[in-house]
Design a protein around this nucleic acid. Sequence first.
DNA 1: ACAAAAGTGTTTGGAGTACACCCATGA
DNA 2: TCATGGGTGTACTCCAAACACTTTTGT
Lengths: 235, 235
Amino acid sequence: MSEVKFNPHVSVDCVVFGFDGKNLKVLLLERHIKEQNEFYNDKKLPGSIIFETEDLESAAYRILNELTGLKNIYLSQFQSFGDPKRTKNPRDIVWLENTTNLKIGRIVTVGYVALIKINSLLQLKNEYADVVWFDVNKLGKTRLAFDHVQIIQKGLAYIRRKSDLEPELLFELLPRKFTISQLRILHDTIHQKQSDVRNFQKKVKKMPYVVALGEKEKNVPHRAANLYKFDRKKV
Amino acid sequence: MSEVKFNPHVSVDCVVFGFDGKNLKVLLLERHIKEQNEFYNDKKLPGSIIFETEDLESAAYRILNELTGLKNIYLSQFQSFGDPKRTKNPRDIVWLENTTNLKIGRIVTVGYVALIKINSLLQLKNEYADVVWFDVNKLGKTRLAFDHVQIIQKGLAYIRRKSDLEPELLFELLPRKFTISQLRILHDTIHQKQSDVRNFQKKVKKMPYVVALGEKEKNVPHRAANLYKFDRKKV
DNA sequence: ACAAAAGTGTTTGGAGTACACCCATGA
DNA sequence: TCATGGGTGTACTCCAAACACTTTTGT
């Protein structure tokens, strides 16, 4: 922390999405702020001001890597947020100055979306014990720092648009072996609609990059589904 | 200049597109830098570091408004550029420090795309006499400041993608009265393909927001084309 | 009359949508 | 044997693409 010089004017925030088989989740950090005799709790996006000599994308990778230990994460810049009032909440300023030991003025932040397989996160480092996967449909029911609600909403809109153009992006969110139902439920969750089961099967069968493994699910209380994998080389 | 406090860490650059009936053009400012006994000439995007209390989009509007005098310009943020080396060319640093009277370190810039009707720019203010419309296909043949080549390329890619999803965006580039040919040539220029004339007519006839004016071109050495206008309310 | 661009219809293939029943498995 | 979700085919509609000739106007 003392070796590297920070640039306290620009930050990067990561909207990390995961899929639990049912709902789309976003990775948030719990923030506990001591105020007088009480703790104020809310959540925030993983993010950081940038180092003076660091590229924006490198900063995003650094944040993700420190948080998850993962390499090769899908990452995409989507929008920057520069409302001068976004860093004017006294609670946020105090928190920033305490965690960075820097005098903080206005911060412009660059938003990145990341997609990860939700189960790859089982072993979070201890220092990040306060990481939660939060349902994107329940964001109204929690408190978020800064303008992070808005950033998440824009990140969500971005990934919806983008996965329309690049459907292969959804496989970043699925386990390596998945069923067509899982893919369909994810697709429907993101596109906020209900696909027809038969039509969806047909569509997937026409994707060369979805390849059958010749294996089936096990220990399910109904007919076992075929398992598939994603072959990036065939996109 | 002395009233308002600048934030010398973040800037906004505008990629302003226009269409001359044949090719897509981008608005550039000529830069003349005196070095020893010679002038070094190159071009740059219109842009500026932001004011300390100014929103990013407001900064972009300010730049456009100072440059063109126009209000209600189509404007859209597309990407931020933060390579720490982007502001390391000594020529660029000297130029920045001379024009701003500020000590300049690293600058992260936020890219905006703007679309304007090329003829609305006839009367540029004198102080901007060095404004040129530059053909986007000839960018390889000129010198550009900073990383502005890259910014233009990304802005171009953005507007191509976006006009696919929102075709009504093209009307920002056409005169208020236009022919279907003009629209087709613009469409083809942006999408880098050659449309079939008949199919294109059919497609346009199905757009409720393209309305026939019942007028024709005048003084053309061939059959006069019907004129149309864009009706934003019918999008 | 001629050069130049405008305008016009039909056919075909592929993609998306709607829709209902039998199958395999674990409890 | 029952409850649960898996897997399958056909018909219709709409859109995109291919393709060639006649019309209007100024010179």
